[in-house]
Write a protein that binds this DNA or RNA. Structure first.
Lengths: 130, 130
DNA sequence: TCTTGATCCTGTAGCCGCTACAGGATGCAT
DNA sequence: ATGCATCCTGTAGCGGCTACAGGATCAAGA
């Protein structure tokens, strides 16, 4: 089946402007065009877009999605390499979680010092002090 | 004491270019200048910069730092308002943590399906499928 | 056939919070 | 006088979109 960019967007869950952005950035190949210049996507194109959206939902950066996509479309589906990429990404997600949890602790600690008064906030004092 | 921008950067832990950026954006007021046009910071200016850096370390966005800073420099130190801002921020940090933990689960799950083989990666299959 | 409204096109600018230049002017020590 | 550090302004880039402006085209109804 052939689809307009709007249909492709609906089917894949990727916004129209974002699809064009991916094309500009070379994440997806440029699709065919109608005589009047409108983009035409086939089912494979839509699948690629859906794949990208799922990867983005998982927080993969564009560069790694590009790698995953080329592994996938070259039909190699090289598991070991996918494993490496997803492992690296998983590690970065876990690092972010650790950082945020640390931050949460510090923030909750500071926040806890705030009373209900209207002056001389201890949190501001701590942030300004030294 | 008076300080050059370089000294202010060292003392506050904020980069030189970042200080100028904060000035452009109106986060800090423009400092005095020497005859030849170089910026001069006093200790209060350095304290403000340090305050901003600490807030940034805590993940506060610039807009909220602006509010905190005005609360602080107006000498009102209104604790209740600081509480509101930090509460909102804390909530957004916690939301981020929840999102990331969810993401981590999904990712680890997918990642766990990858074997050591070189073809037909189940993770790619899942990402492409429908 | 005409008109309306939806959809599409390109190109550009903005978001956040910096960071990294380029290209030039000072300041300070020797 | 020389040389190097530091400073200045202005601009562009990062990632990953998003939001226009201003125009072309399409499909459906009257």
């Amino acid at each position: 089946m052939k689809h307009s960019i709007g249909e492709a967007a609906r089917l894949s869950g990727v916004g129209i402007e974002t699809i064009r952005y991916y094309e500009r950035e070379g994440v997806v190949p440029p699709p065919l065009r109608t005589g009047s210049g409108r983009r035409v996507y086939d089912d494979d194109g839509v699948s690629q877009l859906r794949f990208i959206r799922r990867c983005r939902d998982l927080g993969f950066p564009i560069g790694e999605i590009r790698m995953l996509l080329s592994l996938a479309t070259e039909r190699q589906r090289a598991c070991a390499e996918v494993r490496t990429i997803s492992e690296r990404h998983l590690e970065s997600v876990r690092r972010k979680i650790r950082d945020l949890v640390e931050l949460e602790t510090a923030l909750a600690d500071l926040h806890g010092q705030c009373g209900d008064g209207r002056r001389d906030c201890p949190m501001l004092g701590r942030l300004f002090g030294e």
